[in-house]
Simulated scan of single mutants.
Amino acid sequence: MQWTSILAIYVLFWVVSAFVLLPFGVKTPDEIGATKVPGQADSAPVNFRPGVIAVRATILSIVLTTLYVLNYAYGWIEAEDLIFWGPTVNR
Results as ranks from 00 to 15, higher is better:
residue 70 L to V: 13
residue 56 R to A: 15
residue 9 I to A: 08
residue 2 Q to V: 09
residue 36 K to S: 14
residue 85 W to I: 14
residue 35 T to E: 15
residue 51 G to Y: 12
residue 7 L to Q: 08
residue 28 T to E: 12
residue 31 E to L: 15
residue 79 A to Y: 00
residue 40 Q to A: 13
residue 17 S to A: 08
residue 84 F to W: 01
residue 82 L to E: 09
residue 67 L to S: 01
residue 44 A to F: 07
residue 62 I to G: 12
residue 73 A to I: 08
residue 30 D to E: 00
residue 57 A to R: 06
residue 38 P to C: 06
residue 77 I to A: 07
residue 59 I to K: 06
residue 63 V to K: 04
residue 64 L to F: 06
residue 34 A to G: 01
residue 46 V to G: 13
residue 24 F to R: 02
residue 50 P to D: 07
residue 16 V to W: 03
residue 68 Y to H: 04
residue 56 R to H: 05
residue 10 Y to W: 08
residue 89 V to D: 03
residue 76 W to S: 00
residue 73 A to N: 03
residue 77 I to G: 08
residue 21 L to P: 13
residue 22 L to N: 14
residue 79 A to R: 01
residue 5 S to W: 14
residue 78 E to R: 02
residue 78 E to K: 11
residue 84 F to N: 05
residue 4 T to H: 10
residue 15 V to W: 00
residue 48 F to I: 15
residue 52 V to F: 04
residue 30 D to G: 10
residue 55 V to Y: 00
residue 80 E to F: 04
residue 6 I to H: 00
residue 66 T to R: 03
residue 48 F to N: 08
residue 91 R to A: 12
residue 69 V to Q: 04
residue 79 A to C: 07
residue 11 V to T: 12
residue 51 G to S: 01
residue 87 P to M: 15
residue 5 S to Y: 11
residue 61 S to Q: 04
residue 49 R to Y: 13
residue 51 G to P: 09
residue 32 I to K: 14
residue 60 L to H: 01
residue 14 W to E: 02
residue 45 P to Y: 11
residue 50 P to H: 01
residue 56 R to T: 10
residue 83 I to P: 10
residue 31 E to D: 09
residue 80 E to D: 13
residue 7 L to P: 13
residue 89 V to M: 12
residue 32 I to M: 15
residue 69 V to S: 01
